[in-house]
């Protein structure tokens, strides 16, 4: 771990707009953001505020309309789909709200997937270790359909960490889970993150979850603003809707 902060993600004047019939709809107003290596940051905001759109551009899944995004010094805005997927394979991990495990692969095979794509030799050994870490050591050969929602998300977390990504994007990781399970998952996520020193970018509308991050930024109608005080989020806590379905 570096003591000296080194930026892993840099965003300059990023905008995103879509063409709807004859109107142009601005989803993201010009955004500036820098994320340092090892930092944990939460992007919060209400539904439709644009936080997920921002996440998909930061992770190289989508392209901005204008502006620049650098991930590990790769200018994502200049790269094509194929080049961006290479950047993802080498540097990025994901956790999704809907878990997005491959139903026809076992828990272990799901976890091994990013490691295999990154050509890591001991993918299987690492997968087993990680699944043991998330408490699923006895469920290696189970299919996603045989696992509960919380268990599926634990598999997804193991999958996210296996290739030792430089940066991990999590999109509402507890959104599909009840409060109790959500808490377990959150603990697990932050524990692993701490152990491995991964940069974490987390999108959520849950203030409690956001409060676990070192830094919070708020998204409102496409405008990103830095929230300086952690307590803002704890104070304005709204009841979490369990299992929003």
């Amino acid at each position: 771990m570096n003591d000296k902060p080194e930026s892993i993600l840099k965003v300059r004047s990023l905008t995103k707009s879509v063409q709807l019939e004859n109107k142009t709809l601005a989803l993201l107003q010009p955004i500036e953001l820098t994320v340092n290596s090892g930092e944990t940051i939460a992007i919060v905001g209400s539904s439709g505020s644009g936080k997920t759109t921002l996440l998909s551009i930061l992770a190289g899944l989508d392209l901005p309309t204008s502006g620049e995004v650098y991930l590990k010094n790769h200018g994502l805005h200049q790269l094509n789909e194929e080049q961006r997927s290479q950047v993802r394979a080498n540097h990025v991990g994901f956790i999704f709200q809907q878990f997005l495990l491959i139903n026809s692969l076992t828990a272990l095979e799901n976890v091994m997937l990013p490691a295999e794509l990154a050509n890591i030799e001991d993918a299987e050994q690492r997968g087993i270790e990680l699944l043991e870490k998330v408490g699923l050591g006895d469920r290696l050969q189970h299919y996603p359909s045989q696992l509960s929602g919380g268990e599926q998300q634990r598999v997804a977390i193991a999958r996210a960490f296996i290739a030792k990504p430089d940066i991990l994007f999590a999109d509402e990781p507890t959104g599909n889970l009840d409060t109790k399970t959500g808490l377990h998952i959150t603990d697990l996520l932050f524990d692993l993150n701490e152990q491995l020193g991964t940069t974490l970018v987390l999108v959520t509308h849950d203030p409690k979850l956001a409060a676990r991050c070192q830094r919070q930024v708020e998204m409102d109608s496409g405008v990103l603003s830095e929230a300086t005080n952690n307590s803002d989020f704890v104070a304005t806590e709204t009841p979490t809707v369990a299992n929003v379905g």
Binding site: A59, E82, Q86, A89, L100, S104, P114, L117
Partner: peptide
């Protein structure tokens, strides 16, 4: 589709 999408998100190339 979902399988391919996950593969692609995790960095698999189109040729892969």
């Amino acid at each position: 589709q979902s399988v391919v999408a996950v593969f692609r998100a995790l960095g698999a190339s189109i040729s892969h």
